[in-house]
Nucleic acid binder design. Structure first.
Length: 468
DNA sequence: CTATGGCACGGATT
DNA sequence: AATCCGTGCCATAG
């Protein structure tokens, strides 16, 4: 799996079944792929998973014979070196509660996994023993954002205790370290954070009301509307929004949530663990990108050779069945490999093209279309689409962004726009902005500027205040 | 009257 | 074929 050739085209022509399966595998998230693999592994005896060693330095998995691809880079790095390695998925819920589990792992990928245990450890002493089980149960139903994914009423019914009891426990959880963890939704989490903050710091008066009643609109930056409802000035709303962005976290479980930008509506799934991690390596004062393509399984997937042998020594009836399994297994392995190949090729291409963006921020993002990549790589457009869909990337600055952001045609214009407005001497109207953008080489219509503005949550000119 | 936001259309993208 | 995005036109708020 590690020595696969670089060009996917060199693989021999594929069957339609192969193609179909590869396609569907391509669009899967890491988690989903993991489920697929596990399912296949469980149902097909011909498939086999080989465990592998870990690198003592970086705790990552190593190829059977060889050094850690991350820690011991080859010397002849030219532009960038995509490194494929396999990351184990540790099942969060099957693990026993273990108070001794200290910070033994690298912090970055594990902290989310440990969240339930981490919280439980904090509140364990405050819990009556009979409540411990309930707390543990609730903690296992945290989602990636640290929010509770189950209904309090149901929990109460399940354990045959009054709801008030559950609420009591929830309050305990919410006041544990990632404050607000275990809330039903972002609104509740923010409220708890506000209350805690209130004890030591002054908070804006209307903050609670906004968080409680208007969070939805707040996240969409519909400040004017809220202002009407609450009967305060838009400016005040804006101020509070800024305050919230600076001091609170609507997703207590998320380790770091980039700038104060709420992702629209539901698509939070993308912000889970990244599928790809990009880091920089210093090489002779040059910055080299290292791309880690995370794989779901812990080890290498292959067809079990024993099974292949055994097939010769069986009777005819079972032989057919076994042969079928064998066929399916090798097909599956090939699909996974092809997926890896495509992903690697794509990611490597994206990285080298968008290196400036990765290193120097959104302003440098070059607008590219998936179609262009498809032409360059000699694959069908839909292949790229699938490969890009539902994936996320962690950048060197630890921000996690959806892979599709690399194909955002207007992001660079929007950042320049933001910049202009940040530095403006007086509030600029949309028309003036059009001119200034044109000076920087971005020809956009006035209407479009307005759209971008609202996308970035920037108020119209007459509502903006000049901040010198 | 000017600056903006809503609606919707057409072309590009997926 | 479905969706996204930029843009023009028009109503409306200031």
């Amino acid at each position: 799996m590690f020595q696969t050739p670089f060009h996917a085209q060199t693989q021999r022509p594929t069957t339609t079944a192969h193609l179909a399966q590869t396609m569907s595998l391509l669009s899967l998230t890491l988690d989903e792929l993991n489920q697929q693999v596990e399912k296949e592994l469980a149902s097909n005896p011909a498939l086999e998973l080989i465990e592998e060693r870990r690198c003592p330095m970086c705790h990552r998995l190593l190829p059977e014979h060889g050094k850690c691809p991350v820690c011991s880079q080859p010397k002849d790095l030219t532009t960038e070196e995509p490194v494929v390695f396999i990351s184990p998925r540790e099942d969060l819920f099957s693990r026993e509660y273990n108070p001794d589990a200290e910070s033994m792992d690298e912090p970055n990928s594990v902290e989310v996994e440990e969240l339930p245990a981490y919280v439980l450890r904090q509140i364990a002493s405050d819990l009556a023993p009979e409540n411990r089980q309930i707390a543990a149960y609730m903690l296992t139903h945290l989602n990636e954002d640290g929010l509770l994914e189950c209904n309090l009423v149901e929990v109460a019914a399940y354990f045959h205790v009054p709801i008030s009891k559950i609420q009591e426990i929830q309050a305990l959880i919410q006041h544990a370290d990632p404050i607000g963890v275990g809330s039903i939704n972002s609104s509740e989490a923010l409220l708890v954070q506000l209350e805690v903050l209130e004890e030591t710091n002054p908070i804006p008066e209307i903050a609670k009301v906004l968080v409680k009643e208007h969070l939805e609109q707040l996240s969409r930056h519909q400040f004017a509307e809220i202002a009407k409802n609450v009967n305060v000035s838009v400016k005040e709303i804006e101020r509070v929004n800024h305050f919230i962005g600076e001091n609170l976290n609507p997703f207590p479980g998320r380790s770091h949530w980039g700038d104060s930008r709420l992702p629209d509506k539901g698509d939070l799934d993308v912000y889970r663990h990244p599928d790809i991690i990009v880091t920089t390596l210093e090489r002779e004062n040059r910055q080299v990108l290292s791309i880690e393509l995370l794989m779901p399984t812990c080890g290498t997937l292959r067809v079990n050779p024993v099974y292949r042998e055994a097939i010769h020594e069986t009777k005819d009836e079972t032989k057919v069945e076994m042969k079928n399994d064998l066929e399916k297994a090798s097909l599956f392995v090939k699909c996974i490999q092809q997926r890896n190949n495509t992903m690697r090729q794509l990611v490597s291409k994206i990285a080298s093209m968008q290196k400036d963006f990765i290193l120097h921020g959104e302003k440098q993002l070059k607008p590219v279309t998936r179609a262009k990549f498809a032409r360059d790589m000699g694959v069908h457009e839909s292949t790229i689409s699938r490969a890009v869909a539902n994936k996320s990337v962690q950048l060197p600055n630890r921000r996690i962004i959806p892979l599709s952001m690399f194909f955002d045609r207007s992001l660079n214009v929007r950042t320049v726009l933001k910049e202009i407005i940040d530095h403006e001497k007086h509030a600029l109207s949309d028309f003036e902005l059009v001119d200034l953008l044109k000076d920087q080489g971005f020809a956009v219509a006035r209407r479009t500027v307005a759209k971008y503005r609202s996308m970035e949550g920037i108020l119209p000119a007459h509502l903006r205040q000049v901040t010198p």
